[in-house]
Write a protein that binds this DNA or RNA. Sequence first.
DNA 1: CAAAAACTGTCGCAGATGTTACACAAGGAA
DNA 2: TTCCTTGTGTAACATCTGCGACAGTTTTTG
Lengths: 217, 217
Amino acid sequence: MPLFRSLPEEELRRIFAELKVTETRFKKGEVLAMQDEPVNRLIILLSGSVKGEMNDPSGRVAKVEDIEAPSPLAILFLFGQHNRFPVQATAREDGTAIIIPRQSVLRMLSMNETLLKNYLDISADFATRLSRKLNLMSLRTIRQKLAVYLLDLAKKQHSEAVTLDRPKTALAEYFGVARPSLEREITRMEEDGIIAPLRKEISILDRQELVRLADKG
Amino acid sequence: MPLFRSLPEEELRRIFAELKVTETRFKKGEVLAMQDEPVNRLIILLSGSVKGEMNDPSGRVAKVEDIEAPSPLAILFLFGQHNRFPVQATAREDGTAIIIPRQSVLRMLSMNETLLKNYLDISADFATRLSRKLNLMSLRTIRQKLAVYLLDLAKKQHSEAVTLDRPKTALAEYFGVARPSLEREITRMEEDGIIAPLRKEISILDRQELVRLADKG
DNA sequence: CAAAAACTGTCGCAGATGTTACACAAGGAA
DNA sequence: TTCCTTGTGTAACATCTGCGACAGTTTTTG
C-alpha cells in the first residue's frame, strides 16, 4: 500500500486510533461514488477493482478509467473548491475499501511527515498521468499521437519491438478517436515503412521519423 | 496570497525562520524554469506574471498557459516520480518570486495544518482545471466544445448573455483547434439560431439545444 | 496622436477523421 | 467442444477540420 509505505506498523496503529476510519466491503456492480457527488472522504481500495464511467444523460456510457487496488479514488479532488467526483465509480468485482473523512485525512497527514510525503507523491503521480494524457489529446493528428505513444512504450519496455498495453479498441478510446481511424493510421505508417505491426506487437522500423512526428507533427 | 491565507503573521514568521526560503527578482523575458527540468523547488510568484510555453525543437512555440501573481508554479508536479516542468516558464514582465526547496515545503506543510489545507486546496484547484480541460479536449467536435464552454461561462456569469473571458484566438488555442474553424462553427451556430454572437459578447438563444449538444454531441 | 501589433471575420480547398458495415480471429464460458 | 463475446482488419463515403490568405477592426505601445 503506497500511502502507508515506510511507516512502522505501530506508528500506523497510533495514527489510526485517533481517526475516523471505516472499512467496508463492496460487491461487484455496487456504486462506490456517484458522478458529481461531493468528494468529502478519501476512498482507498484495498482489494478488488473499480471502473470509472461518465454517464451521458442520454443513457450511454462515455469515457472509462480503471483503477486497481491498492489505490485511492479521486485523491486529486478531495480538497479544493469544486471537489466533485469526475466519474461514477462502480465495482468491477467484489472487494474492500477503507473510507477516511476529509477532516481526518488532513489530521492524519499533519501527524506524520512520511505519510504526508507519500500522499503528495501519489497525488503528483496522478497529476502527471492527467497531464500526459492532456498532452496526448492536444496533438492534432492520430499519427502524431501514435508516434508519441509508441516512443513512450518503447522507453518503458526498453525495446524497439513494443507490445501494446491495451487492446486497440481501448487505445482508440484513450486517444479519443474512432477505432477504424486508428487502424487506418497504423496501416498507413506500415505502408510508409515506419512500423511493422502484427496485432498487439508493433516493431519500430524508423525511430527517427517517429521522433520527428512526435516533435513537430 | 492564498497559500498563507488565515495564517497569523507571527506564525508565518516562525515557520519561515526554520526554512530555506529565497526571494528573487526577475526581469521580463527571464526564464524561471526550463521545460523538462526537474521540479525540486516550489516557485511562488509574488508579483508579475509568467507564461508557460512548450517548445518544439523545430523552434516554434506550441501551447501556452499564463500565470498571474500570486500563484505557485507547477505545484502539482513538485512531488512524485516524474516531477518535471511540463512547460518552460518565461517572465512576461518584471516581478518577484520566492523559492522554497522541496524538502522545506514538506517540513513547512507538516508544521501547520491550516497551511497544509491551503496547499491541498490550491493543488486540487489546479487539478480540477486540468481535468476540466481534459474533458473539453475529449469532446469530438468544435460545436460540442463550444456548447460546453458557453454553458460553463453562462453559469459563472449568471447570465444568458456571456462575455468570452479570452480572445477568440486564445479560445481556439485552448480548444486545440484552428482559429478559422472556430469562427466558422460560431457562424454556423448563429445560422442555426442557437446563439447570437457579436465580438466577445455571445447571447444564448436556444439553451436547450446547447445542453443537448453538450450532453450527447 | 500615429504606428505597430493583435484580434475578428470570411473563403476555398486539401486532407484528416467519423460512420457504418462486413468478415474473420481470438479467447472465455458453459 | 461449441457458443458467445470481444478484438482485429478493411472499405466507401460523408463530414469536419486545418491551412493559407486577405481585409478590416480594435487595442497597445511608443
